[in-house]
Design a protein around this nucleic acid. Sequence first.
DNA 1: TATGATATCCTTTTT
DNA 2: GGATATCATA
Length: 801
Amino acid sequence: MANEDILKGLNPAQRAAVEAYNEPSLIIAGAGSGKTRVLTTRIAYMLAQGVSPHSILALTFTNKAAREMRERIENMVGANSRYICMGTFHSIFSRILRENAEVLGYPKEYTIYEPNDSKNLIKTIVKDMGLSDDKYKPNFIASRISMAKNNLITPGAYIQNSTFATEDRQLQIPEFGNIYIEYCKRCKANGAMDFDDLLLQTNFLFRDHPEILAKYQERFQYVLVDEYQDTNNAQYIIVRRLAQYHSRICVVGDDAQSIYSFRGAKIENILSFQRDYPQAKVFKLEQNYRSTQTIVDAANSVIDHNSRKLKKRCYSEGAKGEKIRIFKAYTDREEADLIVGDLRDRVREGSGNWKDAAILYRTNNQSQALENSLRQRGIPYIIYKGSSFYDHKEVKDMLSYLRLIINPRDDEAFKRIINTPARGIGDTTIARIEGIAHEQQVSMWEAVDTMVTRTHADAVEKAIVRKVTEFVELIRSLSLEREHKGLYDFGMEVAVRSGLLPFYREQSSPEAQSAVANLEEVLNSMQMFNEQVEAEIRNGEREEHQTASIDEWLQSLMLLTDMDNKENEENDDRVTLMTVHSAKGLEYEYVYVVGCEDNLFPSQRALESVEGIEEERRLFYVALTRAKSLATLSCVDMRFKWGNMEFSKPSRFLYEIDEQYVECDFSLRKPRGEQSRTTSTTTTISSSKNETAIDALRRRFDVRYQQKTENRFNRESVSRPQPTTPQRDISGMRRVTTSTVGTVTSEPCAYSVGEWVEHPKFGKGEILQAVPLATDHKLVIRFASGEEKTLLSKVAKLTKL
DNA sequence: TATGATATCCTTTTT
DNA sequence: GGATATCATA
């Protein structure tokens, strides 16, 4: 393709960003501004200028993005593009690590631990160290380790840092440093890397082996990074190191869409790119080709409330479009009915395609109510949940078999499958093997040999030895099969001879059937991988002898997510349900964002800090800008939370949308002083003098709720109070069909402010606050330790003093 | 050792 | 409320 053809149809800013391919570039790409197009065109243009595809490294965050880019480039310049090194940070560097694992002291066929493996390992360590997993919660420890790794803090550095030590003491996890040390030690002993290691170890590789770094620096003359605002420290340093030599780095991103700080992403990376590369050219893509003017302007009006941002002004030259609608329902269930009903009407009146609509929410658990409603109406939907496929027990078991065969040192895999399916090897035996392994500093796999020879000829012991030996033989013989069989055949062999597939096939329960289906899905993916590799060999992109290897497949699989799997189903005409996070980068004609309430969106935790709120605001911005022609937001008065009803306030973000873009039948205007304020750090309690419609509504509920308490209604028989005015949707046209919903009852609070209580864990404390909730009371208690805790009256086991 | 009962997290978001 | 983890029991 000729240069002009490649550049055809780009606007001046886009074109400039493409043509500057030899300079370090920062491309600030607003939502819907043709970011992917610019990135792919830039690469295609480079190829057309004679740049070798081998010298290009393009990093993305999702496999999907990588695949999409590859396809688009291929369409422009043809097969040449296949040699570009393009993929997610994790997949590219896992490959590089595999080539260099030995110099880091890892086996070439190292295992990748998924988060669950990490968590299990942490549990074991905590137990071995004689610590309570009450204080040392695996999830918390895991996330702290992850944070340390993302910031390139080694266990050694951690333990020497007094700030961390103090912090850990305050968090009541003084032993954390030692856990971290042990965790890394054991991962290495197991020949395993967790997700964060893929980046951390790459950094070690480049730091400690300049000759290796130089090799990659020379090879990758052009480094391109997509979604740069989402890079964490480890990724940032890797990119810096690689690009140091040629400095032909190009990063693309949108600071307004930085939504992964919880995962270590540093918005600073994009904000200070120009400081890192002073000679960098900056390009701003500000024209939005996706959404209507109304949507773009409304989104701008929200994001304007953020203080930390790069200057840009997004605009749309598209249709003005409909106003953003805001719906309100009483409960989450009604919200679902309202949204789904409206969605159905919209789709029917519009294109008639379900896939034009998406419902977005802040947290995954909000999907339930929506699913019910969609099912009831027989509307097809697809729900994207985080890696659910690998959460299935049978899938994990199958993968563990494969993992153990490839890497016998993988203790987590060993423990998982030695008695799965049940072969009469109990916890005692496993604990014994583990003990020996520990004592001799070897893997459990090796420890088995010792155990077998040590055991004496007692009848019971003999039986155990026989069973364990059988298992060992099974793995050994499967491992031999690996040499002779193709990927798929080998997988089938493992599935059958391990007993996993037969185990589920024998049962007729729906669960077992789905387990069989999942196992088949695993095998299927092996088959596909096989075919893909064969095609590559045919095309000469791959050496003849490099047939599809199981560890390669496994590595690619471990780094896949649910989003990637569902890919091939995209032709299906379904409504999409997913979190706002997973929606980033996607677009739909009609977008519904449910649960726009304070403490949910923005989330409760985010409300604790300004940065937290700003990130939620960006998330809200992402949600809004997914819509092409119509955005609909909704909130509720009450929502089920932790099993009981809680009152909700409309999200502060709803108030932040400039009202000229909003259509809403209830008052969204806060009292004057409130409205103009940009960001308030903590709680914003609206003054009771200027009562809004919502406040009035809430008060109305409070009255009812009190009446009910007085009447001592039976919990089960109480139905939702009928509103005095018919509840209406935004246009005031239809009355919302209501079904009976959860009940609202309460007893008088058992505790009062000033009283002293004792908690089994926290000790004695004074009640500072008792806030009535729908069915319970929220208590704020200051304990003797000085710590203030918020507890639920019914849940906390308190004794009055 | 396997099953059912109870306890305990949870509610951020995921490569 | 619900899913998962741990515990108690046969």
